[in-house]
Amino acid sequence: MAPTPGARTREDGCTLDVLDRGPIHAPHIDGRAPFTRIAGVPGVSAQTVARRYRRLRTDAGLRVVGLTDPHQAARTQWLGG
């Protein structure tokens, strides 16, 4: 089977295409963006984006973690080790 145009293959053999990159990139822009808005960019259904997101979480280990921006909150960020 021919690769999807624009697809990239990771070292572990997992191929990421434009539909996979949407749920990965969207939280950087808006951490609360619903699948319906993410789906509008490539013009697919929200169900397709949700299915891709679940696959990325299960197979590729995708994790979305929310952190506050200390500069916007006028606070200092302390990280312990």
Rank of each mutant, 00 (worst) to 15 (best):
T4N: 07
R57D: 04
R63P: 00
R10F: 08
A60K: 06
D30W: 09
P34F: 00
P34W: 00
T48Y: 01
R21S: 05
H28I: 01
I29F: 12
R63N: 08
P3Y: 03
L62F: 07
H25Y: 08
G66R: 14
R52E: 12
V65F: 06
R8E: 12
G31F: 04
L16S: 02
G31Q: 09
F35R: 04
I38R: 06
A39P: 02
D12S: 09
R37Y: 09
G43Y: 12
P27S: 09
G81H: 08
T36W: 04
R37D: 15
T4E: 15
T9N: 01
A46W: 05
H25K: 02
D20Y: 05
R55F: 02
Q77A: 15
G43N: 09
V44P: 06
T68E: 14
A7R: 05
P23F: 05
P34L: 01
G40T: 06
L56T: 01
G6D: 10
P34R: 11
L79S: 11
T48H: 08
V41Q: 05
R10K: 11
A74F: 03
R54Y: 05
R52L: 05
A46G: 15
A2G: 02
P27N: 10
P42M: 03
G80D: 13
T48G: 01
V44D: 10
P27E: 11
G6Q: 06
A74R: 13
P3D: 14
Y53R: 13
L67H: 14
R52G: 10
G13H: 08
E11A: 13
G22K: 03
T48K: 10
G66F: 10
T76L: 13
T48F: 00
G81L: 06
L56V: 01
I29D: 12
A7Y: 04
V65W: 04
P27F: 10
Q72F: 06
L16T: 01
A60C: 11
R32H: 14
T76D: 13
R57Q: 15
R54G: 07
D20L: 00
V64T: 15
R51T: 15
G31L: 07
V64N: 10
W78Q: 08
D12Y: 07
T48I: 03
P42A: 03
G61M: 01
A74H: 13
L19Q: 09
R21Q: 13
R54L: 07
P3W: 03
A46L: 00
A26H: 02
R75F: 01
P5R: 12
